[in-house]
């Protein structure tokens, strides 16, 4: 048995988890916060009560996971799509670096944001 030299299974695990999370939860957030709220389809809760809701420990964990896992999911897909569309193996290393790097930075930022909310 040898240790794999390939880290794709590592990233794939987060891609998969992010795929599950984002497919279940992203659309409703887009609908609520991006369309229903700005277009005034509903009488919206006040800033204070929304903030209180987001500060609930479970809500913090949920929001962090939703953002971080969505980023890792997207990072993995974007990396492979670039390879598919450009047909160039040489772009894969830099693309992987940029995609996963972006997801890591976004995750750290999300962690701070959710923590200090």
């Amino acid at each position: 048995m040898k240790k794999s030299q390939n880290n794709d299974p590592f990233w794939w695990s987060f891609f998969g988890a992010g795929g599950v999370f984002s497919s279940f939860f992203v659309p409703i957030h887009v609908l609520l916060l991006g369309l229903a709220l700005p277009l005034g389809w509903w009488l919206w809760p006040e800033h204070e009560s929304l903030l209180e809701l987001a500060r609930h420990p479970l809500a913090r964990i949920y929001l962090f996971l939703l953002i971080a896992l969505s980023l890792f999911h997207a990072a993995h897909r974007i990396r492979f799509t670039l390879h598919d569309l450009l047909l160039a193996h040489s772009v894969d290393k830099p693309a992987a670096f940029a995609c996963y790097g972006g997801a890591i930075i976004g995750t750290l930022y999300a962690m701070v944001t959710v923590w200090t909310l």
Partner: peptide, 26 residues
């Protein structure tokens, strides 16, 4: 298939928007 893969760009965009929304909320 390519359209399916491109959904990831929008998922990532939304993750960023949600992050900005939380910052504004806070």
């Amino acid at each position: 298939y390519i359209l399916r893969e491109l959904t990831s760009v929008f998922v990532a965009t939304y993750a960023v928007i949600l992050l900005l929304t939380l910052r504004a909320l806070g």
